[in-house]
């Protein structure tokens, strides 16, 4: 180790630490603000001088906020399960079966990756209004029940499952669906975990489509509800900051538990996409 290497390392640590303050600051500011009283938040204050938890009490006593929390959880969980199931099923089929039209089907699914959601929301909206799906869980969820990217990812992973293993199970008389569930899925657990986390985060944070399709406050998801807080007559910044903090915490927890998967997942999308 040369001296120049050491000094480079020290310099790196210094710069990174300074930058990290910038990265963390908005989180701290959000959290600080949520502990301030109405009077304090409108004055020049940094740390909460008399920290209060009234804002949290108020937000958890508001039935609407709890409802949004529940809506977001239901929607994120159901769509994630659906994506996991269908995407791995399609990935499995495309990787492990030979049948006419296979290439076309794969190309068809992958080509949908090129279509921006913004282009689809208008037809989705018209569709939802025709079928009476506006302002319902199904209306919010249906566009995200499967993901082309997930199909692509799962197919890659299913490819690496040895055929011998599947054939052995067939000889034992296991059904094709049984092979998929009992043999293949356990082997691609890491990929499933990555897909699950990304979908969950994506659904939890989704804004444009839920904003469009939900119309009554009781059907809002957390992000749409947060934007609704801003409504002129409810503009209370300490509550907006409290709501933001509460909506961020579940993700931070998910993130801390699954950080390795998330980092791996990002790298995966980057290097294979």
């Amino acid at each position: 180790m040369t001296r120049s290497d050491r000094s480079v390392r020290i310099l790196s640590y210094t710069i990174l630490s300074v930058l990290i303050v910038v990265m963390i600051f908005p989180f701290l500011w959000m959290a600080f603000s949520s502990f301030k009283s109405t009077a304090e938040i409108y004055s020049q204050s940094y740390f909460p001088e008399n920290p209060i938890i009234d804002n949290y009490q108020e937000i958890f006593n508001s039935s609407l906020f709890l409802r949004w929390l529940m809506n977001s959880a239901i929607i994120a969980i159901v769509t994630t399960i659906s994506v996991l199931f269908f995407d791995s099923l399609v990935g499995f089929t495309l990787a492990k079966y030979q049948f006419p039209g296979k290439k076309i089907i794969f190309a068809l699914i992958i080509s949908t990756l090129m279509i921006p959601t913004e282009m689809l929301v208008i037809p989705w909206y018209i569709m939802s209004s025709r079928f009476g799906w506006l302002d319902s869980y199904w209306g919010i969820m249906f566009p995200g029940m499967m993901s082309a990217f997930g199909v692509f990812l799962m197919r890659q992973f299913m490819d690496s499952v040895p055929d011998d293993l599947l054939d052995a199970a067939r000889i034992d008389g296991m059904s094709e669906f049984g092979i998929f569930v009992k043999i293949t899925l356990p082997l691609v657990k890491p990929a499933l975990a990555t897909l699950a986390i990304f979908n969950f985060i994506g659904d939890w944070n989704a804004f444009l489509w839920p904003l469009i399709v939900s119309s009554t406050p009781k059907m809002y998801t957390l992000p749409v509800g947060l934007a609704y807080f801003s409504s002129e007559n409810l503009m209370r910044w300490e509550m907006i900051m409290t709501g933001s903090t509460v909506s961020t915490i579940p993700l931070i927890i998910v993130f801390l538990i699954f950080q390795k998967h998330i980092v791996k997942g990002i790298a995966l999308t980057g290097l294979k996409g």
């Binding site: 020049q44 909506s247 931070i252």
Partner: peptide, 25 residues
């Protein structure tokens, strides 16, 4: 560094909007 990436963008926007205000807040 990755934390902001997973935070709800709506929450991020409101926090930054609050930070961008003029004095005293």
């Amino acid at each position: 560094y990755v934390m902001p990436y997973i935070t709800p963008l709506v929450a991020v926007s409101w926090v930054w909007r609050w930070m961008y205000q003029r004095p005293p807040v």
